[in-house]
């Protein structure tokens, strides 16, 4: 008899649970505002959830983009870059024009590799291993060691090692902005810049700055701010805490003032169209 009572009471619990789920299913706003739009955008996206755009998946990216459409041109969706008609539909859906060129990110190496070797290194041929050994065999502890970790990581073989200078060289045409190399470099030398940028800053100054009395190679930035002063179109913004110049590619007219005035020639032209790799 008691068992029957127990069965009935447990059944009552089951009923309450079902009711709870049902009420929550009804009460919670079924339609998140703008969910329809998010669905629409999500259908356009490749749906690979690869995460290259830095979001937790295509739907999360669609959610963010539907909130502020300008994001579409900053985040890279490598799959999307290929087909233009999807980008057109996305532009209609978002009501904003997507600048595919700046959306198409490129990897930039912040080092010209002119600091000389302290000792010749014959250990494990990988930058990670070499950088563990007292920060690498170059005079500057944050210079590019040129042992090819990024080269091995790059799926589109856009990175090769320049023989005499011993640093990585990035072929901007092949580079698809997948950012796989960024994580591989132990010295954080590579970061992704917009495909539109015109001037490249070839020194890993922001990392070295923390080390007092650091050694500089003759191409290292002396943080003299001449480029900042010289730029007439104020396309250069001086990043205070990192004490490095940052370039606003929209305002830059490629007048070349900053590149000419830089005493240690740390600045270079980046625009692949003008000079593929002007050293």
């Amino acid at each position: 008899m008691q068992l029957v009572a127990a069965i009935l009471l447990v059944a009552l619990i089951g009923l309450l649970c079902g009711l709870a789920i049902y009420i929550v299913y009804i009460r919670v706003p079924h339609k998140v505002p703008g969910l329809g739009k998010i669905d629409e955008i999500n259908k356009l996206l490749p749906g690979m959830n690869c995460g290259a755009c830095g979001y937790a998946g295509c739907f999360a990216f669609a959610q963010e983009v539907s909130r502020n459409p300008q994001l579409a041109s900053q985040a890279t969706c490598p799959m999307l870059l290929g087909n233009d008609e999807v980008i057109k539909q996305l532009e209609i859906a978002l009501g904003v024009s997507i600048d595919t060129e700046s959306m198409n990110k490129k990897a930039m190496l912040h080092c010209k590799g002119s600091s000389e070797n302290l000792f010749d290194y014959s250990g494990v041929q990988s930058c990670k291993a070499a950088s563990l050994l007292a920060g690498g065999f170059k005079r500057c502890p944050y210079a590019c060691l040129g042992l090819g970790d990024c080269m091995r990581a790059c799926k589109y073989d856009a990175i090769s090692i320049d023989g005499d200078k011993g640093i990585a060289v990035i072929d901007y045409v092949k580079c698809t902005g997948c950012a796989l190399c960024v994580r591989e470099c132990p010295q954080n030398l590579i970061n992704m810049v917009s495909g539109r940028s015109k001037v490249s800053y070839r020194c890993n100054y922001s990392e070295i700055r923390v080390i007092p009395g650091r050694e500089r190679c003759n191409n290292g930035c002396t943080h003299c701010r001449k480029c900042f002063v010289a730029c007439k179109y104020d396309a250069i913004i001086w990043n205070k805490e990192k004490a490095v110049p940052e370039f606003d590619s929209a305002k830059c007219t490629l007048c070349g003032e900053c590149v000419a005035v830089c005493p240690t020639r740390t600045l270079e032209y980046f625009q692949p169209a003008i000079s593929p790799y002007a050293v």
């Binding site: 447990v10 059944a11 089951g14 009923l15 649970c17 079902g18």
Partner: peptide, 11 residues
């Protein structure tokens, strides 16, 4: 129906 089904299964 959903609730009834769950309760039935529990019984």
């Amino acid at each position: 129906y959903a609730i009834a089904f769950l309760t039935l299964v529990v019984i």
